[in-house]
Design a protein around this nucleic acid. Structure first.
Lengths: 341, 341
DNA sequence: ATTAGCACTCACATCAATAGAGTGCTAAAA
DNA sequence: TTTTAGCACTCTATTGATGTGAGTGCTAAT
């Protein structure tokens, strides 16, 4: 039994109606609200066939049909078609929202998540662009207090990470200068996995006899390097997930995910330049039925890339969300490349 | 009708039982679970009196009693007594948790919120210490890309704020040095309200004829100054608020509060060195019945102070939360003073 | 291949009856 | 005067019976 043209049209109609109403779609509603040129009895037969195919299911015997995850999967893979180009007015609106964001990659990523989530009415997740191999392009050491100094790392993407450390003696300008120069000499453009005890020893030794006094500052620099290789994750607009009753049951799981953003990141695997659509029960762990995550990479120049993702119910406004997400991801990419250029 | 000793004991027992069980307390349960040396009939009379006083209420006629907000208010103001000193083991546990936090004030504040919320099982909110009058102690300008530079502001509390800005020409070392020195000359220790057009003009002019070329960097510095005067707010452990059914109704409001943290800050007015306890329907706006917010200032040296607050149900484990909150706030204060010292 | 018709299933709302928890009041006891 | 036993009363929550309606699958006619 194949998916002939009519079955496809019916499938689309059911997804669309269920998205709009949020209630199981029966054969009558379907034939009324949607001119199928066939009777409700025929629709019933077709719907029974789609149920046998595993694309639809019934909450209970006397209820209408609801798309299964497999049904949504079929819908987004085969029926959704290519995303339409965004109309000029929408592009301009997004451009304007984007203009207001900060230049700094961290703040830009967070601001983008907030802005996009408010625009779409779904939760949005972003990560800052990182590359595992090249991380810190430049170090700087700035005295903050008598015994404390901030170590700054400028990432290849143009972001600035800071960490404050405290030493046991009174700092002078020559100290910070020495540390900064040592850091830039030995750790600039060093990939994180290449850090080993030999390198660290060389670093400490290069500061002369009293080199170990500076250890807190050096250690801060090493921490920053690992931070520079680990993307930060921002999650905004969670309150929008409350709108949908089908997510309410798993709200707790969702909130706990927010608290451990690393886990969320592990669940997202968009490939290359593609927009990936995943459903909540397609994940090996943390199955959250009814959830849909649309994610993609944005390219931030210098081979670095970050993730931007929309989280909402499976019955999402795909036709609106996907083009906007894609356009926004190009904006983000451009914005961040511009900073590092 | 005054609050004699027995009424007070009954009030305490009811708050305690209701906290533990989460269900209205009846006269039988009360006399059984709590040796009152009086019969349930006497308790009924007393409970009726407490109801007339507005300290208790009944969800419905045939239910037990539940403390009203006024009742909780009376409890925390008159019956809770001074917080007991924290046992040594608890202090050490908190010390250890605190040790692991970052030195940077922003990260310390956020980490403290997370750690404390996981410890207590309630949501925790922190702000970074700020003072309106003195804000930025030192500026630094670091080149990030060919056309971009990061402006750093070291706050009086020892925090580091950064902002990246882009100019129209290729930057050289002399540029960043000139801008940094101008910023430090004119904006160091300037209070935010004292910034006016005259000051800004002086700043631009001090950079010579082409001073306006640097405007994006100067503007970034001004933005940082306002940022340095505005505390950042961190809100962690929201998932814990789901445990309590009485908050579930207002979950939406709560989540929206998180999205606009400024509002939350407006709701907190702890005075001086006191621990303030406020209930959800004591706020003029955003009434959230059943909510309790325990907040206090922590003093971070240099006259700067931040807020740390615990949010949970009105039936909170006050005797545990308050000492831990207070101890943690002294830790935070010390930790942040140490940085700036 | 399609469709009208129909018996069937099942969730949901309504209603009545019941049990149980807790109260307030009265009158007796301390 | 204060406390307490006793009791009628109120109201919620639960249970079970009943009816309604939406939606289905199947059969037979088109």
């Amino acid at each position: 039994m194949a998916m002939d043209d009519r079955k496809q049209r019916i499938m689309m109609a059911i997804v669309s109606l269920y998205s709009a109403e949020g209630e199981p779609v029966g054969s009558n509603l379907l034939s009324r609200h949607f001119d199928m040129a066939v009777s409700s009895a025929t629709l019933r037969n077709e719907m029974a066939a789609l149920t046998r195919l595993g694309l639809l299911e019934q909450p209970h015997t006397s209820a209408g049909r609801v798309p299964t995850t497999k049904g949504y999967r079929y819908y987004v893979d085969n029926l959704l078609g290519d995303p339409t180009a965004l109309p000029k007015t929408d592009r301009e609106a997004l451009d304007e929202l984007f203009q207001k964001l900060d230049y700094d990659p961290e703040k830009m990523a967070q601001g983008a998540a907030k802005v996009l989530s408010d625009l779409l009415g779904y939760a949005v997740l972003t990560t800052t662009p990182r590359a595992k191999d090249i991380s810190v392009a430049h170090f700087e050491v700035v005295q903050v207090g008598r015994h404390t100094a901030a170590v700054l790392a400028v990432t290849a993407a143009g972001g600035v990470l800071t960490r404050v450390a405290k030493v046991d003696f009174e700092l002078e300008d020559s100290d910070t200068a020495a540390v900064a120069s040592a850091l830039n000499k030995h750790l600039r453009f060093v990939a994180e996995p290449d850090i080993n005890t030999t390198l660290v020893r060389t670093l400490v030794d290069s500061l002369g006899a009293g080199g170990s006094r500076y250890w807190p500052l050096l250690s801060a620099a090493l921490t920053l390097m690992s931070q520079a290789g680990t993307p930060n994750l921002y999650f905004e607009g969670m309150q929008y997930l409350l709108h949908w009753p089908e997510l309410e049951t798993n709200l707790r799981t969702l909130l706990e995910l927010t608290a451990n953003p690393e886990r969320v990141e592990g669940m997202l695997h968009p490939r290359g330049d593609q927009t990936s659509i995943m459903f909540g029960d397609e994940f090996p762990e943390h199955q959250i039925p009814g959830l849909c995550i649309i994610s993609r990479h944005y390219l931030a120049g210098g081979g670095q890339s970050g993730i931007i993702a929309v989280m909402g119910p499976a019955r999402m406004r795909y036709r609106e969300v996907i083009p906007k997400l894609e356009y926004f991801s190009t904006l983000l990419g451009k914005g961040m490349s511009g900073v590092g250029a």
